[in-house]
Computed example of a mutant assay.
Amino acid sequence: MVRKLVIMAAAIGVALAGTAAAQDFPTRPITLVMPYSAGGPGDTLTRLVAQGMSTALGQQVIVENTAGAGGTIGSQKVAQSPPDGYTLLMIHVSAATNPALYPKLKYDQLKDFQPIGIVVDLPSVFVAKKDFAPKTFADLIDYVKANKDKVTYAHAGIGSASHLCGLLFQKATGTKVTSVAYRGTGPAMNDLMAGQVDMMCDQTVNVIGNVEAGSIKGYAVTSDKPVPTLPKLPVAAENGLPGFKLTIWYGIWAPKGLPQPVLDKLTKAVHAALADKTIRERMAQLGAEAASPERATPEALQAHLQAETDKWGPIIREAGVTAGQ
């Protein structure tokens, strides 16, 4: 009897300690894993969000780049971390596409993570080497259809935003061009500027500076409205690709089993970061849009992830694209 009471008391003590820890959260720095290389668009946006969350939480949120395998290495690391709120993941639409690209994943994005919220959306831009023959986006579509065996399309690796845009473009135009995969956006963009490849479609963060400088040619944006920072570029859906839309969204997740008080604090910190005027202005300069409070919630992110997983799975399987494990 005494032994049972001791065990019960110990269990209650552990539960109370856990509750107290959750209520006091955070008491040390938080790691926000960005599963792509430093210097890329995801890294840039993650550091902006981390800055705002650090201010809101009163503890530093440190960005850790755990890159490789289309974001799956960093994602797996977070999935296997303790659900205490001190290890988080910020990843884009590849959270929804990787299950189709990597059939042997050791985690389930829908079941092994606690969603916190969508944080940012940004369109992509169709760009090409500066001396590419087509003058308008409509011309570009016609050119690709007529020269599909010759056109080369650069992307930052299987599962990257530029890869996904290329798949969607080829499906919409009924073409299949030669895709050239690079290890990251930087090398792909360098070869595009050097004229080694013909075209690309990538996130606004990556292309605005080069389009403005005239290093590459911009054709159209993939959003349903013009991008203020690229006012001269038309909307793809209104210029030859009816219904075409691609928004690269980013969300934040924690490991499954996160205590509710910790989840509440993290969600509020995300809201505070996205409401920060300086952060919103910087995002806007990059062609990105901070998510609304209604979308920056666990429920909204989970529903969006499910919808995006259902959308991209058939497209990827139809294209016959898979990545090595």
Results as ranks from 00 to 15, higher is better:
residue 1 M to Y: 10
residue 1 M to I: 06
residue 6 V to R: 08
residue 8 M to D: 14
residue 11 A to V: 15
residue 12 I to V: 09
residue 13 G to P: 10
residue 22 A to G: 10
residue 23 Q to C: 15
residue 32 L to W: 12
residue 40 G to M: 10
residue 45 L to I: 07
residue 46 T to Q: 12
residue 49 V to S: 11
residue 52 G to K: 08
residue 55 T to L: 02
residue 61 V to A: 14
residue 61 V to I: 14
residue 64 E to W: 12
residue 69 A to N: 05
residue 70 G to A: 12
residue 72 T to S: 01
residue 80 Q to S: 13
residue 80 Q to I: 12
residue 83 P to F: 04
residue 84 D to V: 01
residue 86 Y to G: 08
residue 87 T to H: 05
residue 100 A to E: 02
residue 101 L to W: 00
residue 107 Y to H: 03
residue 108 D to M: 02
residue 112 D to S: 08
residue 114 Q to W: 03
residue 120 V to H: 10
residue 126 F to Q: 00
residue 126 F to L: 01
residue 128 A to S: 08
residue 133 A to C: 03
residue 144 V to K: 00
residue 147 N to Y: 14
residue 148 K to V: 12
residue 151 V to Y: 13
residue 156 A to Q: 13
residue 158 I to C: 07
residue 164 L to Y: 09
residue 168 L to A: 15
residue 170 Q to F: 00
residue 171 K to P: 00
residue 174 G to L: 13
residue 175 T to R: 03
residue 179 S to V: 11
residue 184 G to P: 06
residue 185 T to F: 07
residue 193 M to P: 00
residue 196 Q to V: 06
residue 201 C to I: 08
residue 205 V to M: 08
residue 205 V to W: 10
residue 206 N to D: 13
residue 213 A to H: 06
residue 216 I to P: 07
residue 231 P to N: 03
residue 231 P to I: 10
residue 233 L to C: 10
residue 243 G to K: 04
residue 249 W to Q: 07
residue 253 W to N: 14
residue 257 G to F: 12
residue 263 L to A: 06
residue 268 K to D: 14
residue 268 K to M: 05
residue 270 V to E: 05
residue 273 A to Q: 02
residue 274 L to R: 06
residue 278 T to W: 01
residue 280 R to L: 12
residue 281 E to F: 00
residue 282 R to L: 09
residue 284 A to T: 11
residue 286 L to N: 15
residue 287 G to I: 02
residue 288 A to D: 03
residue 304 H to G: 01
residue 304 H to V: 06
residue 308 E to A: 07
residue 312 W to M: 12
residue 315 I to H: 04
residue 316 I to A: 00
residue 319 A to F: 04
